[in-house]
């Protein structure tokens, strides 16, 4: 019988399947295998992890398709890839490559200073970053099928991830306390579509899954963000910039599943070797903050 592709339910459905899991940034097919063997539920195929993008500077663009194809060939779990904010032609290329999710990401250099991609125009689902509820609802309004709180990518500092999660979850809770006549004003305050504001007020959650990204580098970090309401974790530089990536990857996977059980988090936190060194986010200049990209 007739098959309908690229529907909301199919796009959001894959995000549902990734819940409770860890999506790992990888830059080679070997990394991708390590991630898959460690229990990653998906990988993000990149040329450089965010920590290196920070150090090397320059314009960060979509990865070489050949690299993404190598990674697709190496693993059976979903493969995601990033395009620049507003760069719908990069997104078209990634859809042709049949990546499983596109991350319209602030980690790359934005291509459009006013507009994000019209994500409804695509069959492939998109994830977008958000620092607050209004930003999350604007991205969902443009067709994002998953939201990730941004945090500060490549910093190894979890403080921004916590700030963004608390902001989004707190504002969702506050919307639930408003009566119907107050929702239009709330939509105005958040610069968010009224229909989505009303939906969040009624259901008590976003209409799409919300994952957490940006600065998670230890099992306890993963447990923290899951306890704060994240439904899964993206881990970028935290794994492959550490001393023993395979072991740390396995530990973060277990801590994400058993986040509410400190016994397990304790057990997997022992002897992980050197964590990524990281950058204290409060020492970053405003121009170096990736989370401020996106409109």
């Amino acid at each position: 019988m007739g098959e309908e592709r690229g529907t909301d339910r199919v796009k959001r459905g894959l995000a549902e399947m990734l819940k409770g899991g860890v999506i790992m940034d990888v830059v080679t097919a070997d990394h991708a295998k390590i991630a898959e063997d460690a229990g990653a539920c998906a990988v993000m195929a990149l040329e450089r992890v965010p920590a290196d993008i920070r150090v090397q500077g320059g314009v960060a663009r979509m990865s070489d398709p050949a690299l993404i194809e190598e990674i697709q060939a190496a693993v059976s779990i979903p493969v995601m890839a990033k395009c620049r904010i507003g760069h719908f032609a990069e997104a078209q290329v990634l859809q042709e490559l049949r990546v499983d999710y596109i991350d319209e990401s602030e980690v790359l250099t934005p291509a459009d200073e006013a507009n994000h991609i019209d994500k409804w125009a695509f069959t492939v689902p998109f994830v977008c970053g958000a620092t607050n509820l209004g930003e999350a609802l604007r991205r969902i309004g443009e067709g994002a099928a998953m939201i990730r709180s941004k945090g500060e990518a490549g910093s190894g500092d979890v403080v921004e991830a916590v700030r963004h999660l608390r902001s989004i979850v707190g504002d969702i809770r506050r919307l639930g306390t408003l009566d119907a006549t107050e929702l239009m004003q709330a939509a105005k305050t958040h610069s968010a579509p009224y229909e989505l504001v009303r939906e969040v007020a009624e259901t008590g959650w976003l209409p799409v899954p919300m994952f957490c990204a940006g600065g998670i580098s230890t099992p306890a970090d993963a447990s923290l963000v899951m306890q704060l309401g994240a439904e899964a974790c993206f881990v970028g530089s935290g794994i492959f910039k550490s001393g023993d990536p395979a072991k740390r990857a396995r530990a973060i996977v277990e801590a994400t599943t058993h986040y509410a059980n400190p016994d397990v988090v304790l057990k997997v936190s022992r002897d992980l070797g050197e964590p990524m060194v990281g950058i204290n986010v409060s020492t970053l200049a405003d121009s170096e903050r990736l989370a401020d990209r996106g409109w």
């Binding site: 007739g2 098959e3 309908e4 592709r5 339910r9 199919v10 059976s76 499983d100 069959t123 492939v124």
Partner: peptide, 16 residues
């Protein structure tokens, strides 16, 4: 047989 229908762009809904 895993992923027998293909990648995510081939995911679909249908009446069965």
């Amino acid at each position: 047989h895993r992923n027998a229908f293909g990648r995510q762009v081939e995911s679909f809904e249908a009446d069965i």
